[in-house]
Computed example of a mutant assay.
Amino acid sequence: MERACLNCNEKIEGRIDKIYCSTYCKSSYHYKIKKKKTVTRFKEVNEQLKINRSILKHFHTTGKTIMRKEELFKKGFNPNFFTNYWKNSKNDIYLFCYEYGYLSLKEANKEKYLLINWQPYMQ
């Protein structure tokens, strides 16, 4: 009976109880299994922060950009994930995904976001 490696399906030679053709295949197989299983809270949050930053970067083309919320949401933006915040003198709270920030606005009964870049005076 010919045995095949669990990772690469190559023929296994040697001991009868071997299930991998090499230590590389053994390691690779277990890495793939662990990667599939391991969805930690850290990974979920980090992935959403990356998505949010990418979306803000894509839409923010000038010093200040005003966008409809639903346009950002269609792309996968989630306002519940941010890295820091800044409160201005009017007590408006800007939420940031790294260097890209947003402020929730309501103009003509439409939900919008004002997009900005982090500035040194915001320290």
Rank of each mutant, 00 (worst) to 15 (best):
I19A: 01
I12N: 07
Q48T: 02
F82C: 00
Y102C: 03
K69H: 09
K43N: 12
E71L: 14
P120F: 13
T38H: 12
R68M: 12
K34P: 01
Q119K: 05
C8A: 09
M122R: 05
E44L: 13
S27L: 14
E70F: 15
I51Y: 06
T65S: 04
C21Q: 04
L72M: 10
N46M: 11
E2A: 09
P120W: 12
A108H: 15
K75M: 12
T38R: 12
F42G: 06
W118P: 04
T65H: 02
Y98M: 01
M122N: 03
C5W: 03
F59C: 06
D17I: 00
C8E: 03
L6D: 08
F73E: 11
H30T: 02
I66V: 15
S54L: 06
Y100L: 06
Q48K: 08
N80K: 12
L6I: 00
F82Q: 01
N88C: 09
T61M: 13
T62Q: 14
L105D: 01
N78V: 00
G101M: 04
S22Q: 00
W118Y: 07
K75N: 03
I55C: 05
E47I: 04
I66N: 01
G14D: 10
K11I: 08
K74V: 13
L72S: 03
I19H: 14
F42W: 02
K87V: 15
W86A: 02
E71G: 10
E47H: 11
N9D: 09
K74I: 08
Q123L: 15
E44A: 08
R3Q: 15
I93T: 14
K112S: 05
K75S: 07
M122P: 00
T38W: 10
N9I: 02
T40Y: 07
P79A: 14
N78M: 04
S104I: 08
K18Y: 12
I66R: 13
Y24R: 10
L114T: 01
K37E: 13
G14Y: 10
G101S: 11
W86D: 01
T40E: 07
K43E: 10
G101V: 08
N84K: 11
M67W: 03
N91A: 10
E10I: 09
F77T: 04
I16Q: 12
Y85C: 07
L95N: 12
D92P: 02
S89W: 08
L72I: 00
T23A: 14
G101A: 10
P120I: 08
Y29F: 13
R41M: 05
K64W: 00
K36H: 09
Y102G: 02
F81V: 04
E107R: 14
R3E: 05
T83A: 09
Y113T: 01
T83V: 00
E47V: 05
I33S: 05
K26T: 01
V45Q: 09
F96C: 04
K106A: 11
P120M: 11
H60W: 03
C25S: 11
Y20T: 05
F42V: 05
F82L: 02
L105Q: 15
K69C: 15
A4K: 14
S22N: 06
T61F: 07
Q48I: 08
L114P: 01
R41L: 01
K110H: 13
H58N: 14
Y121M: 06
